[in-house]
Design a binder for these strands. Structure first.
Lengths: 187, 187
DNA sequence: TCAATAACTAAACGATTGTTTAGCTAAAAT
DNA sequence: ATTTTAGCTAAACAATCGTTTAGTTATTGA
């Protein structure tokens, strides 16, 4: 062993995450990352390989950040009410400090929708699949609904969640609240 | 006068629009534009000034493309049913040939949400304001609704439309249909 | 104490970005 | 027919992109 690192990888990745979250992948340059992460290019490359590596780690860091909300959602047991609460928790997390950055995962999902990046695409796929399963599970709490209704409503809610995340970048808190409330009136 | 242009500006802009529509502003290069528009950089710059100019003209071209749908919506008179039909018409137009490009205006709205481009931002603003006014007008056809309900529902529908356009880049026709149907369940 | 080595700085890499320009081609006007 | 002039081709521009590398600094283990 020789000289010690002067930074903590987890800490600089959190800073990188915020830059990617705000600007997306393509609109974030290595220069910006250098500045925001507080370390220079050499350190970035030796720790994370390349820009893509920094992005993948940033996504993981974001998933960790939203994990508590997911766990809360998973462990809840009121059915539809839990889904609604999950929607509120999600927009709360993303709109702190007047952020207007939307949801990092949804932003990434959109930016890479026409891309051929298998790694990112699979990360997105599994995330969305998990969310859909969870929503279906909560919907099934209401045993009066048949399978077809549940699938339709799951599609509806998944798309609503996606749209909400995208739209939350440009809409006010009140507009978002109105949206969520009416969204669940329809079920 | 001297030599004649060997291309028609309206035609090459339509081709440019498709490139921007698919890739967004930043992820479209002048090289790609040259190739897709079928003319070289000199001609592009002499006709449209710069990349930004090509983009602005592309947006106008898209607005013209969606204009018929807007006119149909404007002239309809069934109220909420017209809004629903407008939603269907919009996704139809954008998902021809398995496009998955979403709505060009919504894509632009999202890409420029953190930008400081006044020209684009104002284009977006006026478009959204017009849409909101139209939706309110249609909602008012139902005279039993009070002002507050109408505004809430207009916010809801505007956000739903935005979300739908964003999500339609990654969702199937069936998912989109499920979404639209349930969206109008309770209005 | 000193050689070994990992982490740092900073400059350079080739490729690509948006944009401009010099020189050639072709059509209109005299 | 010749001059004029706008449109074309293609090369070059400076700036920035992501990435690499040479050289220096600092810490460890012997």
């Amino acid at each position: 062993m020789a000289r010690k690192k002067e930074y903590i990888e987890g800490e600089v990745i959190q800073k990188a995450m915020n830059v990617f979250w705000r600007n997306g992948y393509e609109n974030t340059s290595m220069q910006m990352l250098e500045k925001e992460m507080g370390i220079n290019k050499f350190s970035i490359y030796s720790s994370f390989g390349n820009k893509h590596g920094v992005f993948v780690e940033s996504l993981k860091s974001y998933k960790f950040k939203v994990n508590s909300i997911f766990e809360k959602f998973k462990n809840a047991s009121k059915g539809i009410e839990d889904i609604k609460q999950f929607f509120y928790d999600s927009v709360m997390l993303c709109s702190q400090e007047g952020n207007q950055k939307g949801c990092f995962i949804t932003n990434t999902y959109n930016e890479f929708s026409e891309s051929e990046d298998k790694i990112i695409k699979e990360e997105m796929e599994t995330f969305m699949d998990n969310l859909k399963s969870l929503i279906i599970e909560k919907l099934k709490k209401d045993t009066s609904k048949d399978e077809d209704t549940i699938l339709k409503q799951a599609n509806y809610l998944l798309l609503a969640k996606h749209g909400l995340a995208a739209a939350s970048r440009v809409n006010s808190q009140k507009e978002i609240k109105d949206y969520i409330e009416i969204t669940f009136n329809n079920l």
